[in-house]
Each structure stands twice: as C-alpha cells, then as structure tokens.
Simulated assay, not measured.
Amino acid sequence: MSRVLGMGNALVDILARMENDELLKKLNFPKGSMQLVDAETSSRVLQEIANYAKEQASGGSAANTIHGLSCLGVSTGFFGKVGKDELGAFFKKDMSENNIEPKLLESDHASGKAVALISPDSERTFATYLGAAVELSAEDIIDELFHGYTHFHIEGYLVYNQPLIEKALKCAKEANLIVSLDLASFNVVEDNLAFLKDMVAKYVDILFANEEEAKAFTSKEHKEALEEMAKHCNIAVLKLGKKGSLIKHFESIFEVGIIPANSIDTTGAGDLYAAGFLYGLINLLPLDKCGAIGALLSGNVIEVVGPKMETDRWDKIHTELEKLRN
C-alpha cells in the first residue's frame, strides 16, 4: 500500500480578506510573495488586520498537500515542529482528525503562523512567522522517519535550512521513496537557486512549480521552462493557473485544462493540485489524468477561503473522481 510522508513548516494559517491592496503597499510586501517576518512584524500585521474578517486553518504548503491526499483516502503522515501552545495543539488536533499521522516535534517557542492577505482578485500574499517550525534541524532527520512510506513530499520553503532539506532528501532516496518537491515561491527560488538545482538533480523525482517559480528556476517561460525543469527530474509539472498545467515525462508533454470555478481565494491551489496529481500517480493513472485530478482539486479549493474544504465539497470531488478514473 502506498503511504505518503509530508515534511514542511507546521504553520497555522490566519486568512484575512482585503478590500484593496493598500495594506500590501503600506507593509511593502510584493503582491503574491511569501515574506518571512520576525515576531514583531508578525504582530504588526495582525494589528493591521485586527478588524478584518478572519479564518484559521492548519497550513503550510506540504501539510496542505498531505491533508488533500488524506481526504482522497491515501494513507499519510506529516513531519514538522510546533510549539507547546494553543496553535500547536490546534495543528496537531487537525492532523489527527483528518487521519494524518502527526509526527510532530515540540518546542518551547511559539508555533509558526502564516498570515494570508487575500486580495480582491483572490491572489494571496503571506507574512510568515516560522516560530517553532524553523527549529526543525538536520539532526531531527533519522532513517526510521521514512519507514513504512513509499512517497515523500517536501516544500521548497524549507530550503532556507539547507542542511535540513539536503539530509531529508538524501535519506528519503536512500529509503527508496519517490520524492516530490514543490518550489513554493519565486523569491524562495531566487534566493537559493544553485542549491535547489543541485538538490533537484540529485534527489527529486517530481518537481512542481508555478509560472513565476519556473521562471526563477530556469530563466525561461512556458514550454521552454517546462523543458528545462524536466532536464533535472523524471516528471516536471508546470502550473499555469487559469491556463491549466503542463506535464513533461521523458519525451511526452501533456497539456491539462482547468475546471470552471468562481475564484475567491487561491490559498492552497498549488498544494491541492499536487495532492490530486500525486493521488493519480499513486493509483497508476496516466499523467494527463493525474493533472486533471490536480485541476479538479485546485479548482474546488479556490472557491473557498483557505486551503481546507468542507465534507460535502469533498463528496462531490469523489463523485467527479470516479468519472475521471474510468
């Protein structure tokens, strides 16, 4: 049986919808970026949105993907670090309630949180305080962590701790797991380009990137970017938002469309696409079907605020999934 282990920053998402983008200018946050902030800046952002309507959900890129896989019926686990606080307890409870094995370490410091500032056009900009999540270290990676798993999904956000991500990728490959990496954010790629290219070439089987991340990784766009990505791994997946996605495996390129959707928040769209794609792969479906399942999940999650979907929406997804599998 296939089992997927995810590893990433264990964060609680605080989601706030903005009436315009003036706050981004005030905070000097590039729209659509992920900004790593300190505790003081995080508090300032929370003060700025004190009167906004807000929602809370366990988050972090890899955790969102693992949650999606679990909702599709895949056996999963998640490795990360949280604080011994209310947010940490919230994160762990959410994992357990969704049948995800919480392989969580605990810290005396505060749990990480990501404030998602959602623009009127549904684009989101993150102010991320890593807190306890950043304390995950290479020494925490042990061989036993990967026992019983067949796949390993990791987020690019961890790349700021290069010894950690390198040891995790190396151990996963030595344990014969299929490794997938989501590049996470264009500024993350720009800051760690040489290292990321080295890691992908050595250890990564499946590489996920959106247009901006792919451009940062390859200095190219669209199919040229896809071709360049595919030189470094077995399967390259380029997510193009409203234009669908492109997948390359050896000499084959697949173009995948989208489903009609009323987008209100793109938080989790890429993460849920990865969940759908990996689900298809685990079930030995053709790569165009894997992409179509990714599109099904991402098209649904952008119709809700945050990276989580309610049970009745998942029921509809499962109905559509049966049609796609046949």
Rank of each mutant, 00 (worst) to 15 (best):
L5I: 15
I118F: 05
D121H: 04
K289N: 12
L169V: 02
I258E: 08
R17W: 10
S245E: 11
I317A: 08
A172V: 15
F78I: 03
K31N: 10
G156K: 01
G77A: 15
A225D: 04
V134Y: 09
I264A: 13
F90Y: 15
H222T: 11
D312C: 05
G257I: 04
K173N: 05
I235R: 06
I178H: 08
I258A: 01
N64L: 00
A275S: 15
N161M: 02
L23E: 11
E211Y: 10
K223R: 12
L177Q: 10
D288T: 14
A50K: 15
I118R: 06
A230D: 06
K220W: 02
K93W: 02
H147W: 03
R124I: 05
F208P: 00
L246D: 07
M1T: 13
G68E: 07
K173D: 00
I142A: 09
M229Y: 05
R17G: 07
E139M: 07
H153W: 04
G80V: 02
L226C: 05
I154P: 01
F90W: 04
G241N: 03
K197A: 02
S245W: 06
N283V: 12
Y149G: 02
L69K: 11
D205S: 08
N98T: 09
H67G: 08
L193E: 01
K223L: 10
E174C: 04
K31E: 10
E221W: 10
N234V: 06
A114F: 00
K26M: 06
N262Y: 13
G88Q: 03
K26N: 09
A261I: 04
M18F: 08
E55N: 11
G32R: 02
D191S: 15
D108S: 14
T65D: 06
F195K: 03
L36V: 13
L72C: 07
G270C: 09
L297T: 11
K197F: 00
H151Y: 14
S61Q: 06
A209Q: 02
D85Y: 05
A53P: 09
V82S: 08
D143T: 12
G59Q: 11
F90H: 13
E19Q: 12
G80T: 07
E251V: 12
E19G: 04
T150H: 09
E190V: 13
G59H: 13
A216D: 05
E40T: 15
G32P: 02
L321P: 03
E106F: 13
G280D: 12
F79L: 06
I141H: 00
E224P: 01
R124K: 10
Y273A: 13
L46E: 13
N99A: 14
V12R: 08
N51F: 13
C171Y: 15
A127C: 12
A62N: 12
A230R: 12
G77I: 10
N161R: 04
S58G: 12
E211F: 03
K243N: 15
P260V: 11
G112I: 00
L285M: 14
E322D: 14
F217D: 01
V304P: 02
V179Y: 00
G83D: 11
G276D: 11
M7P: 07
L284F: 10
L117E: 11
R325K: 15
D85H: 05
M309R: 10
L196T: 07
L11T: 11
N192T: 04
W314A: 06
H222W: 09
H109S: 14
W314Y: 13
N210L: 01
K93Y: 09
L15E: 11
V256Q: 07
G131R: 11
H109A: 12
